[in-house]
Amino acid sequence: MKYSKSELYSIALDSEVQHLNNTVLEELQTIVSEIPENIHAICFEKRIDQFEDPVDFLVCYYCSPHNLDSVSSYINQKNPNKYALRINDFISNRKHSPAYKLVNLIWFSFDYEEGRYSTVPTFCVSTQHCQFSDFSLLSSFIINASEILAPEFLNKTKELLPSLECTRINHFSFTFGRKEFRAKFVFKLETLRLPSLLKDLDWKGNLYLLEQLLNTIVHISDEIQVGLSYSTELSEKIEIELPWITSLDENYLKDSFLSSLRKVTEKELSTNLTPWLNLKVQTGYYIKITLTSASELNIKSYLYSSPYKKRK
């Protein structure tokens, strides 16, 4: 059983976890009315310490031929800047090139920056396919796609990839919706293996603070998902995604862990996120901790919902 995009959006807004001001709501409504139907999931990205702040809004499409046509047509209606053209080049390849057929999901992120949502969204490509466990296949696909999506950073992409063979790359993305254009790898690995990987990459961020954070996280999960951004150089920023919470049994955001997290991040989780699980559609969430280049730790929540009715 599947709800339409407007129904899902309304259901998601009904959650008591949501606190969006009217300006943001109006702008999001415009985005929702314009994006193609047949969405696979949506996500609200919110800071947990400033819950009323504007949110980034993400939408996911399954790569069926019809969806690819709809998405391509939607992107064509945007300002035809070079980034929109790159997205459509990628979609064209997804439709016609066998090497691209393993991509099942694509994401758009409408990023809120400088008081408005981006026109051309940030673009994310899922590489979650069993055949991509062949790293040479995955690697050559990413390089090929990066030639289309971020040729400016191609050398860095090629330089970084070999070190990531010990990880599972689940997504790569391009911040077309941000003022600063960057590429990003999102990958899974064992929590305590991250520091040695970063040393191999000659990462210049605050390793001491990161290790403190990882030593806290390892008590709830021996695996994390990491977002590593780059342009022509590797960013000092790093993002750590904690595990999914899709039921109350999985909720690790409890006193003991939150207390340890607060000592490292100096941030307070001010909102109870568990009501997000009460919606009638499939839902889940996690938190992501970002270590910035200024050695600050910010925490965001990612509230996902899909148009499929909750299974009993």
């Binding site: 599947k2 696979h40 996500c43 399954y62 099942n104 899922s126 689940n170 499939q282 839902t283």
Partner: peptide
Amino acid sequence: ELRPEIQHTIKTIW
């Protein structure tokens, strides 16, 4: 065509 609706589990979308 049915596969995305049947196989969908939220933990695999990201």
